[in-house]
Design a protein around this nucleic acid. Structure first.
Lengths: 142, 142
DNA sequence: ATTAGTGCAAATCATTTGCAATTAG
DNA sequence: CTAATTGCAAATGATTTGCACTAAT
């Protein structure tokens, strides 16, 4: 989601991303949806919103640029495809196993991994993944 | 990891998986490693341990069977490939962003998402993913 | 003019599928 | 004999790459 009041252009600028027309429409789309679209879905959604054609390669290039710049995060929810999330607030995800729908869950809701979500979320499993740096040393494992 | 004392065969049996030679060597490998191998890595590791050839298709078939039967879990850590984890205890993962190394983190260690891991894990980000059923109703979102 | 960004098509990588051959009950 | 499993090769789907073209400093 786009920080209140900020323009798409200023979001890109503040992350050091040069605002080309293609990047603008892609970022605008991502910053204004609650969905977690794939590259293909981004392409479908924004092609036509631009006077010129928008190529698949550019969508992939742009998504990678936005990811590197920290404007979007990758979400690995299903095997074989990457989804993108421009919600920069601290949050997690709930995935409906039936439909594949992905719903943002604010970090505050994840205080205790017990009784944490709304009753409407029947949790079958939780997968917590930490990303970080491992200090190599001689002592034992986790 | 294989439950202490149990044979690979009994693990398969208790999950209703028919023990073919191919499945046996694959399951044995997965149940005895701390790694989180890809299908390709499984193939490399077990081919040669069988009198006959082991085809890629069979590795994929077997991994899917084991997953469906609940003998292994999928781990989505990097885009584009699936890793497999036969540690059936309640745990999460730490991924070293430099090397890609994936380390199991026991669930008890994830009590508070603040000061939770060994000092040697410098956490850059945490991705928590819930899988479950969403009760469809008329009220509002998370 | 130089460099970054784009578009297209071909290439690549992981995974799935079709189908014939093999194995087990 | 019948059904499940396997192997191979071809097909698919997502993503990347090579390279010529365009836009912007």
């Amino acid at each position: 989601m786009i920080p209140n009041g900020q323009s798409v252009e200023s979001v890109l600028a503040s992350h050091g991303v040069k605002p080309t027309p293609q990047r603008m429409v892609i970022a605008e789309y991502l910053l204004n949806t609650l969905d977690h679209p794939t590259a293909e879905e981004v392409l479908d959604a924004v092609s036509g919103k631009l006077p010129v054609a928008l190529s698949r390669a550019t969508v992939y290039n742009t998504l990678n640029s936005l990811k590197e710049a920290g404007v979007v995060r990758e979400v690995l929810a299903e095997p074989g495809k990457v989804r993108y999330d421009a919600n920069l607030s601290n949050h997690h995800h709930f995935i409906d196993v039936k439909t594949g729908q992905i719903i943002d869950v604010p970090a505050e809701k994840v205080e205790k991994l017990g009784k944490l979500l709304d009753k409407k979320f029947k949790v079958h499993g939780v997968q917590v993944t930490f990303f970080g740096d491992l200090q190599q040393d001689e002592s034992e494992q986790t």
